[in-house]
Amino acid sequence: MTGTDILALAACGLVAIGLYGLVAQAEVLRKIIAFNLLGAGVFLLFGVVARRGAGAGLAADPVPQAMVITGLVVAFAATALALVLTLRLYQITGAATVAEDPPEPTAPDS
């Protein structure tokens, strides 16, 4: 087993943990952390693809690393947005969970 294989297995593990956390946890903060774990797994996988250079037929391929940088920026923005929403939710309701169904809004939304 080479180092790349170990990284690939680690990526799979991170994706699995992240996906489980996103689906199973009700606390929004935990969901956001799980999303970041999942994202880390996906980015690690891009790293593995870059090291192998498999599809491009190169010894090592720099393109996936360029994609990871963009992906990191997007994931960072998504995390920031989710955190701001969570903070507002906590300020309003006193809890940051999406567990139970919210009561139907009684005021009309126009």
């Binding site: 999303f35 998504a78 929403l85 309701t93 999406v98 919210p102 939304d109």
Partner: peptide, 13 residues
């Protein structure tokens, strides 16, 4: 509106 945040947060997730 407070009523929005939970459903929109769910949408984001």
């Amino acid at each position: 509106k407070p009523s929005q945040f939970k459903s929109e947060l769910r949408y984001l997730l």
